[in-house]
Design a protein around this nucleic acid. Structure first.
Lengths: 162, 162
DNA sequence: GGCAGGTTACTCGGATAGCGATTGTCCGAGTTGATCTGG
DNA sequence: CCAGATCAACTCGGACAATCGCTATCCGAGTAACCTGCC
């Protein structure tokens, strides 16, 4: 199992948007340029974020994407689920009901213990991701980004936005 | 992202092996028959369990698979990792280092906050799975399996093992 | 009757195709901002 | 100089290929039990 690569891109892009003034939009092309990513493919993932209501989009010159909500109201889980879907990773196919020892479906009152175990683990995973907001990610970044990169980033923003 | 379907099969098969007397081996064919699964494909996953040292295999007539360790020393995480590999689900490609604002790799002392967040969530996921052993799964089963199924299963075992 | 050798049937293990989801790419619809023209 | 219409460039959004990993299958290597013939 491998997590969708676009998840990394989406979280990074959202954290950039969170650092910008709220009324500034950044196009998919600019975001791709900032991270040196294939712009068309990144656009596909940004569309998912837009459909999930995490970012709002505007067309035409000066348009692009901006956060639809304050950064502290968007969790990492929101972004992950927007890109990767909300389906459970483990899917129980009820093989206990099959084969020579299976009995009628109504006899099974609960999901089987194996599925419950897997789902409990997924729940813990989601809880960890839900506990971290974009604002938290931004704060981490402010504390740890090399000063040189911060300067280059600010310079890049100014050259692009004007 | 979807978890390998074989994980469900492998855990069910291991829980069956855990319920058997330790000196009894069950072949891939029999296990597939019990759950009505494609035997050849199930065999592939059982090989993974064997390579991981969770089950021991014996060839020839009367051979098959049996648990290599006591059921309380095999966690669900062991099985999941045997089938799905031990690689992290989230792979950080360090896109923060790329693009016009990137600086030299030595400037980045820690993994980026996004990767740390994702990995912390995976750690919580693994911890939940590591906390459940095959013995626990078996206990859950004993408490919840319909009596009719238990009878049919015992009957099937007797007809197969003799 | 007991034993040695050969045979047979059964099992695992790795090597080999098929398919679906993720990855990657493109063009059309729509909007905004600037430009140009006329008053 | 200002207002309005036109135009052009830019952006998103959905539709269309290519690649990789999961799914599925097979056959060969090895082993244990069994059977047969001989002592």
């Amino acid at each position: 199992m491998k997590l969708n690569e676009g998840i990394e891109w989406a979280i990074h892009c959202c954290s950039i948007l969170a650092a910008l003034p709220p009324d500034i939009a950044l196009s998919a092309k600019r975001l791709a340029e900032f991270f040196d990513l294939p712009s068309h493919y990144l656009a596909k993932h940004l569309q998912s974020l837009s459909q999930a209501g995490l970012v709002s989009s505007s067309k035409g010159p000066g348009g692009g994407y901006s956060l639809a909500k304050p950064a502290d109201q968007i969790s990492v889980l929101n972004i992950v689920q927007a890109i990767d879907g909300r389906a459970a990773h483990f899917q129980c196919t009820e093989i206990r009901q099959r084969g020579p020892s299976g009995v009628e479906p109504p006899c099974y009152k609960n999901p089987c213990g194996i599925a419950r175990t897997m789902w409990r683990a997924e729940k813990a995973w989601r809880a960890e991701l839900a506990a971290v907001s974009l604002a938290d990610i931004g704060q981490l970044g402010l504390n740890e980004i090399p000063q040189t990169q911060m300067d280059k980033s600010l310079h890049w923003f100014e050259s692009v936005i004007k």
